[in-house]
Amino acid sequence: MNDHDGTVFLIDDDPGVRDSLTLLLSLKGVSTQPFANAESFIASYQPERPGCVLTDLRMPGMTGLELQAALHERQIEVPVVVLTAHGDVATARAALKNGAFDFLEKPIDDAMLLDVLRNALRVDRERRTAATARATTDRRFERLTHREREILAFIAAGHQNRDIAAKLGISARTVEVHKARIMEKLDCHSLAELMSAHRAAN
């Protein structure tokens, strides 16, 4: 595991916990960035940095649950692993209902912690990959002209070149040319690829 895999953003008000977990995780090859409170994490958060949050639930200032709400409000989809020294099931349930990735009770078993964090980082990576792919497709679709989009819609609906030509009042040959253009712009090599790209974009 290395830096590309993502960073664990560790938020805990206890300096001992912060220091020791940072040390342990970095020795295990997990890059870790500690924060003393949730506010400073939010202030320095960069959406393009992959990673996951490991946060204490009870902290002076913004609590773990409030941090979750704040992230949600800013539409930051980073996975949140919640730590608590109290093991209060009700709070833990609330955290999970609010979309926490997982929930661990202090004192934590280091093996379990590592397991959970690796899972969280993997989920974040997958989410980012999917988001990147979607962004690429979106960008490609933006390059289509109005007429090309019209024709693509007809193709996706299953119409033949001749039908499309008749409906748009153009020659079948022109439709053929447009179709080749669309394939090129969307980086598709077969009709099947074109169809699936269209589905993904919608």
């Binding site: 916990v17 977990l21 342990l24």
Partner: peptide, 25 residues
């Protein structure tokens, strides 16, 4: 008991992590 475990949990967490880290090193 609740107060005691809460107070002890933080240093215990740190202790476990430090010892595991020392072991790795």
């Amino acid at each position: 008991a609740s107060a005691l475990t809460h107070e002890l949990n933080q240093p215990m967490t740190a202790l476990i992590s430090y010892v595991r880290a020392s072991q790795l090193m």
